[in-house]
Design a binder for these strands. Structure first.
Lengths: 212, 212
DNA sequence: GTCTATATGTAGATAGAC
DNA sequence: GTCTATCTACATATAGAC
């Protein structure tokens, strides 16, 4: 005998279904790319008839756009730790931690984002030219100030940011390669920690920002 | 009046056409992904009727496989500079130079390779488990020796390799993002040089392998 | 070895009963 | 809001004349 639960309101149904669809879509887009993904696959994974996808997201492209925007938001949020910091050691450490956490917890989203950029950002070009550019310019300014204050060596801020993005994203985007070289096993807690510490150590030492 | 040229032999025709097809395919696969690429697009870019593609490469998958293998070969060749080196400064510098040159000269190939790995290496899994693993193990051994000989700090060799791959590949795979942040212009000679020098400096300093 | 025409499958998207 | 049946377009791949 199941206790009768309060019937879901339309809003609830919509929210739950959209969430399930977005989650499934992220996985399928990550594994197959935009062109290789099919609405049928996504529907099956979400446990819904294919026609329902079109009820919630009119077109495949609209669904894809939602997935990409979601991960982009997460990506930007990782910036907060960067801003509050008083120096490169705090700021860059926290940023690497945050980005590595994203690589670990949202590997599919990271791959979709990487794929979007690799193919010329067909749907997020406007974001890149506005939000991302502003974010980047702000961080460049912060790094420049740190250099002026003698808190780190005079390293080109942009190339340093690219380095941070590259090294952290790599663990998501090339996760399969890393797993294969790890004997086919995914990285353990310990190995993730080592990866993070390694990146921090090499980069912080490399820019002359030694931990106190 | 055109001078009558010696008629091409069958072999020549085959070689030329295959080359044109592979070049076009690399570009289309890079831009659209495997699923998004169409034989029609590749044929148009190669300047051949679509049916001819199937004459040279029976299936889309076979054509794709050839493209991926090509770039993988180039990728592996960059390893040579690494081996001959007497220490981390020489070896890692040369490797970064070689990989950055690949990112610059073969951005499409790099993207195809990245895409292949991101999607779980459906066609190159066997290579990754044999050739790539052996290559990696060999390089890990070299780095370990350098550490023992006191030529660099005790950094985890695997994570160091990932860092080298990530930072150099990034300039190809995320080239569009970098261009957008560069005001929509592709990097100049000078900027490429700066990028290379920056990576070398941060990493070599970071692992305690200072140039003499 | 080349190329037009076409066979065959499957994708995205929709109609319309429930 | 759900789901079956179906439309339409286009992709891969091939047949067969040249």
């Amino acid at each position: 005998m199941t206790e009768p639960t309060r019937p879901m309101r339309r809003q609830d149904i919509r929210r739950e279904n959209e969430k399930a669809i977005l989650l499934a879509a992220e996985k399928v887009f990550a594994e197959a790319g935009f062109g290789g993904a099919t609405m049928q696959l996504i529907a099956d994974l979400a446990g819904l008839p294919k026609a329902n996808l079109h009820y919630y997201f009119a077109t495949k492209e609209e669904l894809y756009r939602s997935v990409v925007q979601n991960i982009f938001e997460i990506w930007l949020q990782a910036a907060n730790c960067f801003d509050a910091a008083r120096g490169p050691v705090d700021g860059i450490s926290a940023y690497i931690d945050a980005k590595m956490e994203i690589s670990r917890r949202h590997p599919d989203g990271s791959k979709v984002w990487a794929s979007e950029v690799m193919h010329g950002a067909p749907v997020l070009q406007d974001y890149m030219e506005s939000t991302l550019r502003e974010w980047t310019d702000g961080r460049v300014e912060i790094i420049r100030r740190w250099i002026e204050e003698g808190k780190m060596d005079p390293v080109d801020p942009r190339h340093l940011l690219y380095m941070l993005w590259a090294t952290t994203q790599h663990y998501a985007d090339f996760g399969h390669q890393i797993e294969t070289l790890n004997g086919g096993k995914s990285l353990s807690d310990r190995q993730w920690r080592e990866a993070k510490e390694n990146i921090k150590r090499v980069i912080l030492t490399g820019i002359g920002a030694q931990p106190a």
